[in-house]
């Protein structure tokens, strides 16, 4: 082996080692902490500000007269677990019966139709940690024997722990 061969071999070794290092070379690193904090968030609302149910005629031979409206939607979002939605009215002494039921909810469990009162009543159960909506189906009920009149309700929907 000549001197030039030895020199070449030495250089080749050094170059190969350098190339191997360069391909995986780490020059340095640094780190910091990033915290993601999500607050309990709940939003709820109705897409229609107001609606009117009008009973203008009855059926011969029937005491009960009804009208139904399913034009409004309830929308909600909550990232808390074990939540339900209740509904109540501010009208403590309505002349006529106003009933409500949730229809076609995207989540949660529907309760049966109920008469609105000032006491909150369960509308939907098990809506925790969800973004959802349902149709609000109102039914106004009057008796043929009742005098004409009107009721105004301010209906409040609330997301709360169940």
């Amino acid at each position: 082996m000549t001197m030039s061969h030895l020199i070449g071999a030495g250089i080749a070794l050094a170059v190969a080692a350098f190339a191997q290092r360069a391909s995986a070379q780490v020059f340095g690193s640094t780190a910091h902490t990033v915290t993601v904090q999500v607050a309990p968030i709940t939003v709820i609302g109705v897409d229609l500000a107001a609606l009117t149910l009008q009973i203008s005629s009855g059926t011969p031979g029937q005491e009960t007269m009804t009208v139904t409206d399913a034009t409004s939607k309830l929308l909600w979002g909550t990232n808390s677990s074990n939540q339900k939605i209740t509904a109540n009215t501010d009208n403590a002494a309505p002349l006529f019966d106003l009933r409500l039921v949730a229809v076609n909810p995207t989540g949660g469990s529907v309760t049966s139709e109920f008469s609105l009162s000032t006491t909150p009543h369960d509308l939907l159960l098990n809506v925790g940690q969800s973004l959802g909506s349902c149709t609000l189906q109102y039914r106004g009920v009057a008796l043929a024997s009742q005098a004409p009149g009107s009721d105004t309700h301010v209906i409040t929907f609330t997301v709360q722990s169940q």
Binding site: Q25, F27, S29, A31, H32, T33, Q37
Partner: peptide
């Protein structure tokens, strides 16, 4: 530029705790 996001279905930190990331930046060839 950090962006954090969460869906309602992912819950909240009060019930589940915060996410604590140790983010590492490395300079390499």
């Amino acid at each position: 530029q950090y962006t954090a996001s969460a869906t309602f279905s992912q819950g909240n930190s009060t019930e589940l705790g915060n996410d604590l990331h140790t983010v590492t930046y490395t300079v390499v060839a």
